Simulated scan of single mutants.
Amino acid sequence: MKLLSMDTSTLVMGVAVFDLETRKMLGEMATNLHKNHSVRLMPTIDQFLRDLDLKIDEITHLAVTSGPGSYTGIRIGVTTAKTIAWARRIPLYSESSLAVLAMNGMRFDGLVVPMFDARRHRVYTGAFQFDRGKMDEKFPQQVIAMDRWLEQLANSNQPVLFLGDDVIRFREEIETALGENACFGTPAENIPRPASLAWLAYQKWSQHEPPEHKNFAPNYLQLTEAESNWLKKQRKEGMNG
């Protein structure tokens, strides 16, 4: 039994194949480029499986990141995964893109904080801590103003490892707020790994957690601009009515 994982929630596009029976990662591929995931994802999966001498029929399980991140990227990954799962009639598991990135800090003794820029000086983020390989969510995943987020982290009085390519935009502010407790990932650690997504999906499968329902949808952590504008319009019309 083999699980195919895919992540398109950020600029990173990654795929991996994990053998559920032998617990062996058969392969992993990731790029971090300003290129169209919708054009590249399926050809990449096809070539990747060829490189591993695998056929799509040998894939028995799927995993995908559900967000947060790029609205377009998340939709591409989720739609592709759901389409394959429906066509092949195989189970699909999902995981937060923040949790996947946090896996790069598994060996860090302190809070692990993955972070994506959410614009207007806000971030998609959360705080995790690892104990004997188990990941605990210490602060909920959320969209939050950066100054408020740093205040919460400073009050925890713990070393904090910040992960993600967007962290550099806030580095000076982070260092001012946290001082010596501020730690930063290496370039390799700032990239979410599809192999980590596959491992998290394996843990769900091995613990008999149910796969996603057919109505599974992305988790953006906030409304898209179009959805927000629609709700504002509905409220305004309701007040005028």
Results as ranks from 00 to 15, higher is better:
V78H: 02
Y93G: 04
G73W: 00
F48Q: 05
S66H: 06
V78N: 00
V64M: 07
V64E: 00
K82I: 06
G67T: 01
H61T: 13
G69Q: 02
L54W: 08
G73P: 01
G73V: 04
L98F: 11
T80E: 04
E95F: 09
S70Y: 08
V64C: 09
S97T: 10
K82F: 04
A87F: 12
T72F: 04
S96I: 12
L54Y: 04
R89W: 08
T83L: 14
L98Q: 03
W86E: 14
T80P: 03
Y71L: 10
H61M: 10
Y71C: 10
L98Y: 07
K82A: 06
T83R: 12
R89F: 06
G67E: 01
F48Y: 06
I74F: 03
D53W: 07
G69E: 03
I59E: 08
L92W: 01
H61F: 10
D53F: 11
S97E: 05
S94K: 12
S94C: 13
E58Y: 09
I84M: 09
D53T: 14
S70G: 11
V78Q: 01
I84E: 02
T83A: 15
L52R: 07
T83Y: 08
D57A: 14
K55W: 08
D57H: 13
W86V: 11
I59P: 00
V64A: 07
R75Y: 09
V64H: 00
T80I: 13
L54P: 03
T72V: 05
T80Y: 08
T65K: 07
I76H: 06
R89V: 12
D57T: 14
V78L: 04
D57S: 14
F48S: 06
S94Q: 13
I76D: 02
L52I: 08
P91T: 02
T79Y: 06
R50A: 13
S70W: 01
E95Y: 12
I90C: 01
L62R: 00
G69H: 02
T83I: 11
R88V: 04
S97Y: 05
G73Q: 00
R88C: 11
W86N: 11
P91G: 09
I74D: 02
D53Y: 09
T72A: 08
A85H: 03
A85P: 03
H61L: 10
R75H: 11
L62P: 00
G77K: 03
S70H: 03
G67C: 03
G69P: 00
I59Y: 06
I84F: 04
G69N: 06
Y93N: 10
R88T: 10
H61V: 14
E95S: 15
G69W: 01
L92E: 02
A81M: 04
I56K: 14
D53H: 12
A81N: 04
S70T: 07
R89S: 14
V64T: 07
L52K: 04
Y93S: 06
I76P: 00
W86C: 13
S94E: 15
S96K: 11
S94I: 03
K55E: 13
I76G: 03
A81K: 02
H61S: 14
D53V: 11
I84V: 08
L92N: 01
T72Q: 02
W86R: 13
I74G: 05
